[in-house]
Amino acid sequence: MIALLRYQAVLLLRSQRWLPPVLLYAGTVGISLDGQSQLGSQLGWNAAVSVPVLAWLTRSQLAAEPPAARACLAAAAGTRRPHHAALAVPLAVGLLLVLLAAAVSWPICRTPQGAAPVAVLGAGVAAGLVCVLTGSALGAAGSPPLVRTTAGGATALVIGSVLLLVLSASPANAAVRSAFSSGRTSADVPLLPLLAVLPLCAVCWWASARAAGRVGAATGRESG
């Protein structure tokens, strides 16, 4: 599995498909750092931005591999393990982005009186984790092999990101609201959103890997 993760990481790096979503995240976070916002609000904003960014980055990863290379990898390691590795690499990149954004936001943003900066930071990072997992789930559901066309995938990611951030039943929405409230009152770690997003992400990963396995089996029968 380590070799597959390394392969997917090199594939993403060399394809340069990571540049647009990462630059979008860095630019959006950088513009919002004006030194006037409170730490919790800034971390909530950072977390919210990571949902569409992770969905985009995940789709970029899943669409980066040429069909011939995918077929060779499936013949050597199966279809589901490489697919899981392709989903794990963007997730790791998203976690790194959230941590870097939190590290930059901490010394710049204000912390309200009576609130522990470390507690607010921890709650904000936890909210970022929830949003990263949410974006990964959306990216898995809106990418090949479940959604193959570029137009369909882009539409699914845009609409899905808006709904996941707006609907109150969404774990991402609850986590972002928790982070914003941490900037004004006590810092509460979003445990319930985290517990809710884990099975959501697992189901989306399973469905995406299952579809990849079916596509690989059908391709093998056609080639045979």
Rank of each mutant, 00 (worst) to 15 (best):
R110G: 12
L129H: 13
V147L: 12
H83W: 14
G78H: 08
V120R: 09
I108P: 00
V158I: 06
Q113D: 15
L95Y: 13
S161W: 11
R59C: 06
S50T: 09
A102D: 03
T155M: 12
P145T: 08
P112C: 08
G124V: 12
L91M: 15
S136L: 12
A156D: 04
W56I: 01
A137P: 06
A69P: 04
R81H: 03
P112H: 12
I159T: 10
P90C: 01
R80G: 01
G124L: 15
R148G: 07
C109K: 01
S105N: 09
H84Y: 15
V118D: 08
A137H: 03
A127N: 07
V162D: 08
L99R: 09
R148Q: 14
S161E: 04
A154N: 08
V93Y: 13
P90A: 04
A115R: 14
G139V: 03
L87I: 03
L157D: 02
A68P: 01
A92C: 07
A140T: 09
Q61C: 00
C72H: 11
P52A: 02
A119S: 13
P117A: 10
L99H: 01
G139A: 11
C72L: 14
W106H: 15
W56G: 05
G139E: 05
P144D: 09
V147D: 06
G94D: 07
A154G: 00
T134K: 12
L133A: 15
V49M: 12
R70C: 00
R70A: 05
G124M: 11
A127G: 09
R81L: 11
L133R: 13
I159L: 14
A119Y: 01
A127M: 13
P67N: 02
V162G: 03
A71T: 05
A63H: 01
L138G: 09
A92K: 03
A141D: 12
L62T: 01
Q113V: 15
P90M: 01
L100S: 03
T149C: 06
A127S: 11
